[in-house]
Write a protein that binds this DNA or RNA. Structure first.
Lengths: 154, 154
DNA sequence: CAAGATTGATGTTTCAATCTTT
DNA sequence: AAAGATTGAAACATCAATCTTG
């Protein structure tokens, strides 16, 4: 019986990080497999779709989208390229600044997102919500929000 | 200044997950760059070193190590291969079962880990501990532990 | 045949260099 | 020159197939 926990010598911050790393990898793997199996969509693709859906005008500049989903600009160019090739996203050039492109959901992309969201939420429910109290989930979101917002220079 | 938050239509579980994803990516990126710049070590490599250091006999079977750091077996084979080529880890065959190999830290690996650990902890402190109260950090670790442990153990 | 580990093929992401527009 | 976006090369991880040992 192999011991698989390595928390014995860790304290406070590092321990919380270690668990966060494991938890996020667990959810990420589960989500990725399930979304891909059922909807032929990876987590990063889902992330792009939902970020666009939630964006102010339902569109985002490539650079801003890259920052939002935390991918490199090169990585995002290719990811959007793949989504565009599959007809889920469209790229439109900015009228005022010819250097800039906006990514936006196509009807097919919005449709796909709607389908995938149910699967997504079910996984989250199973892995997170069902294992914590509502209060704990709220505290989790709040604390993590503080980490994210500060880290991004807000 | 573009709006970059997309939490408006999310609720409870999905919101907590969305923030967890962002927070873990933020820390992961920062950690990866810093460890690589200062110590020529990636996060996954650091993860392997510290997992070995914390393991029962300071050694782990390849399969168990793969599970601990949440990599595929193929991925781990190559990661350990790289570490071995750099003299930080050694592979030793199990005496009882010739199929099985144990990864273990070399003195150079232990040394490198000790150096890198300071950098690692400083980043965690800056990104997590310094932004939350001790109580919040504790609650974070506890909740995330529940997610990871699948309900058992804790 | 099953378990442990590795390898081959493939896909995705990153860094750095490049091209265009401001 | 700087900003926005893309591309080539390289690094890394995954799945499936393979090899070896139990």
């Amino acid at each position: 019986m192999p011991k698989r926990d390595a928390t014995s010598t860790l304290s406070d911050g590092p321990l919380a990080w270690y668990r966060m790393l494991q938890a996020s990898r667990l959810v990420l793997r589960t989500l990725d497999r399930r979304l891909d199996d059922v909807h032929r969509i990876g987590v990063n693709e889902f992330d792009v779709l939902i970020t666009l859906d939630n964006a102010p005008e339902r569109r985002l500049r490539m650079t801003d989208l890259a920052e939002a989903v935390m991918l490199s600009s090169g990585g995002l160019t290719r990811l959007v390229g793949r989504l565009e090739a599959r007809g889920l996203v469209a790229r439109i050039q900015d009228a005022a600044d010819a250097r800039s492109f906006h990514a936006t959901l196509t009807p097919a992309g919005a449709q796909r997102l709607a389908e995938a969201r149910a699967t997504h939420d079910a996984v989250i429910d199973d892995l997170i919500s069902s294992r914590l109290t509502a209060r704990q989930v709220g505290a989790l979101a709040s604390s993590l929000g503080r980490v994210v917002d500060d880290g991004r220079g807000l």
